[in-house]
């Protein structure tokens, strides 16, 4: 199956020069964990997730995720988020963004998502954002395929 037939046809994204405070609004309002970062031509130039923001605000992030409580770091997180709120998202985004072409298939998408431990993969046509594919969508398609075969 082609990615264009299973992707979510939504191009919610953020421009590289938008502020961190806007990113947090987008993630919160749209109830998503991350968005592609695009330039003024809608070309994908990065990806930013809530974890990228927390990593930037808490440099000892890796230690915290293994500890039993983040209570002691909470004040620092709050201060840093306020400090960074007006900074552009390009400061925090992951510039080595993975994308997939809409003409590619679900096997490649599953491979990219699993091997890179990511939740959302931007779908592009000539590097311009046309949708998003998630592991959940691929699992749904695989289950539907199995059900159809059994029938």
């Amino acid at each position: 199956m082609k990615i264009k037939d299973l992707m979510i046809r939504d191009v919610t994204s953020i421009m590289n020069d938008c502020k961190l405070v806007d990113l947090i609004q987008i993630l919160s309002r749209h109830k998503i964990t991350g968005v592609p970062v695009v330039n003024h031509n809608q070309e994908v130039i990065g990806f930013i997730s809530q974890h990228d923001v927390i990593k930037a605000a808490l440099p000892n992030y890796l230690e915290i995720i293994n500890s039993s409580s983040i209570f002691s770091e909470f004040i620092q997180l709050s201060k840093r988020l306020q400090e960074y709120s007006e900074h552009p998202v390009e400061e925090f985004m992951n510039k080595k963004v993975l994308t997939i072409e809409e003409e590619d298939n679900e096997v490649l998408a599953a491979s990219l998502l699993i091997q890179n431990k990511i939740q959302r993969l931007p779908v592009v046509r000539e590097n311009k954002l046309v949708g998003i594919v998630t592991l959940t969508d691929i699992c749904r398609i695989l289950v539907e395929k199995t059900e159809n075969k059994e029938k």
Binding site: V11, T12, S13, M15, C18, D22, Q25, I26, V38, H40, N41, Q42, K128
Partner: peptide, 17 residues
């Protein structure tokens, strides 16, 4: 006003496509 600002940003991007 904030909603309008964010909508304008999306409109501007989508125009290019």
């Amino acid at each position: 006003e904030y909603d309008l600002k964010m909508f304008h940003s999306a409109f501007y991007r989508v125009i290019s496509q």
